[in-house]
Every structure is written in structure tokens, then in C-alpha cells.
Design a protein around this nucleic acid. Structure first.
Lengths: 176, 176
DNA sequence: CATCACATGTAAAAGGTTACATGATTCT
DNA sequence: AGAATCATGTAACCTTTTACATGTGATG
């Protein structure tokens, strides 16, 4: 149900076509709430049928420009500060950690070191993104910064944890 | 595809029934890789058909005791240190952050403070869990600790971020 | 005129959630 | 005898992923 709010949120800022929105999903929103083209187009149709969006004049290549309705804004507004909405957390990194005792210590340590490196790489890429985004005043600016900072802190946490975990493995040999 | 490895991982430690495994999912594994009963039973059948598990003697109430096969161990072993396996990260907290500029600053700040509180609560519950788990030497012990530490660090990061983000909102009023 | 960017959709399959359905054994 | 626990399964629905399919307009 969250993709719905991602779309409403983007359209609350300015009207756009499915194609436009996909551009945003590819650049910035991919880090926050990934979505595929087939999902976005489908959801736009559903939101229009539900009266939360309207379609404007047909553009050049069958382009459909979507605009948020009053009902759409109300729906979005209700969600914005809804504390109860939580996605079940699933992390393959964590699942690996849970079962890492089944691998030889040296291999497990190598795996964790590699994960630390990868997290470091993610941090670097986010910092690059930070420099390249035009902080122009849309919902992608002031509050995009908050999201970006979250990503940076998450990556840093994962790097530090993986580094620490590798030392723990060294200390305690494999069991099972 | 990860549920598959969660089950193989648990069964690599000791044979168990679907019901037993559900117990583990309810207690410890829920924090790592949540799964429902209907998912677990279905996957066990699929793993058996794929030759990665075998079913032992029928127990009391039609109980089916599953054991991992050599093929199952090989499959698990390949996955254990596979660096490429990554789940797309989706976080409602992050999505909220991204669009928080659309709410009034006071409301947005209240939301973030509440999220900080909630993260703090999660930390407390994990610390409780840490005390109550019997660290007996299974894959849930040494390496369950790693997973638990990850959870603690994640919650701490979220708490600190939400607290920091609230101050950022205070500084910059709403746009859109 | 060819290529690239624009632009929209559908179909099939996999993964996940919720609800329903049923029955056996053990404990009090 | 009744309740709790053990134990398995199915059906419907929603979300997400991957792949296919098609066509238009602008640019060099």
C-alpha cells in the first residue's frame, strides 16, 4: 500500500506522467521505495479509478498527465504522520549473519569484511548523489536530505557492524 | 528465495517439524526474516520435492519430521557466503521522511519524535530478548548474538536519526 | 532515415499476508 | 470433559519482479 503514497507524494508537488514518475523512481526514489514501471502504471490507473488522481489533456505520444485531487491530498495527508505504518524488516545481511556459524570461521570473516567494503561503497555513492542532486525546494530537497542522511547513517552502521562482527567470529570458532 | 535458506539453516542445526520451525520463527527469527505458517509449510513441501530435505517417520499427530539432505547442505553452503544476495530496501520510515515536507512543521516534528521513542522501545525489547535467550550453542547462539547486535545498532541509528531530523524540520519551514 | 528518448501498457510468475478448515493428543 | 497445545494444510488476495509488446516524436 505504500507505493500509492509515494505516487501521491510526488504528484502533490507537481503533476506528471507515468514516464516522468518513473524517472524519479530511477534516480532518487529508488533508494527509498523501489518500484518497477509495470507497478507504477498499474497503480496510477487504480488511483485514478479511486478518484485520488485525475488525468489531464492527452499529450504528444499518448502522454497522460496525472494530477492529484482533493481526495488524493486528504488521503496523503492522513498517511503523512501515521505512526502505525511499518514494513516488516527483511535483510539478507542479517539472515546471513544468523547462520554464519555454519561456515568456516575464515570464510565467514571474509564474507563480513566484504560486506563492510560494500557498505563503504554505498556510502561513497550516496555522498556523490548528495553532491549531484539539485536541491531546488521540492519534496526532493529539504526532506530528500533527511532521507539521504538516513541512507548514509544506515550504511555507516552496517559497515561498523560488519567490521565488529568479523572480530567476533575470529574469537569464537564454528559450531554445529 | 531467502525463506528457503532460513529453513535449510535451521534444519542444518537439527531436524524439526513445520510446527517446531514456526516456533522459532515466532520467537527469534521473526526479527530477522518473518514468515507465516502457510509460507513455511508450503516451502517445506517444495524443498522436499527438490530433494533438499527428507521426511522421517510420521509422528504423533501426523507430525512430519524434516531432515536436511547432503544436497540441501551443499545448497545452503553455497548461499552462506554469497555476497550478491541483497533484498531491495524498503522502509516506510524513510518514505515518510521523504515527504514530510508536505506536513506542517509541528506535526512533522511530532511524528519524528514519536519515531525516536518507538525506536527506543525496540531497543529495550531487544535488550530484554538478549537476557532471555538461552545461548546454548546452536546457530541461534553465537551468531544469533551478531544478529541481535545488528538489531540494536539499527534501532539506535533510527532513534538518533529521528531525533536529529526533528531538529532539521524545526529549522526549515514547510514548502510545496 | 535511423536512432534515441518518450510513452504506455499486458502477462506470467514468484513471494507474502490473511483467513479458513480440520483434526489429534495432552493436561488439568 | 473441556481446554490448551500440537499439527498440517488450502484458498483468496495483494505486492513485486521479469519479460514481452507496441508505437510516437524529435534529433542528427
Amino acid at each position: 500500500m505504500s507505493l500509492r503514497y509515494a505516487l501521491l507524494g510526488l504528484l502533490a508537488h507537481r503533476s506528471a506522467s507515468g514516464y516522468d514518475l518513473m524517472g524519479t523512481f530511477r534516480s532518487s526514489l529508488a533508494h527509498v521505495w523501489p518500484a518497477t514501471q509495470s507497478q507504477v502504471y498499474g497503480e496510477l490507473t487504480r488511483l485514478t479509478n479511486a478518484g485520488l488522481l485525475t488525468v489531464g489533456e492527452q499529450g504528444p505520444r499518448g502522454r497522460r498527465e496525472y494530477a492529484i485531487t482533493e481526495a488524493g491530498r486528504a488521503e496523503l495527508d492522513g498517511w503523512l504522520t501515521d505512526e502505525t505504518a511499518r514494513t516488516p524488516q527483511r535483510s539478507t545481511l542479517l539472515l546471513h549473519a544468523f547462520f554464519l556459524g555454519l561456515a568456516e570461521p575464515a570464510r565467514a570473516r571474509r564474507y563480513l569484511s566484504r560486506q563492510a567494503e560494500l557498505a563503504d561503497g554505498r556510502m561513497a555513492r550516496l555522498r556523490e548523489l548528495e553532491g549531484s542532486v539539485d536541491w531546488d525546494g521540492g519534496p526532493l530537497s529539504t526532506h530528500g536530505r533527511l532521507a539521504l542522511e538516513y541512507g548514509l547513517r544506515l550504511a555507516a552502521m552496517q559497515r561498523d557492524w560488519a567490521t565488529w562482527a568479523a572480530t567476533q567470529i575470529a574469537a569464537a570458532p564454528a559450531e554445529a
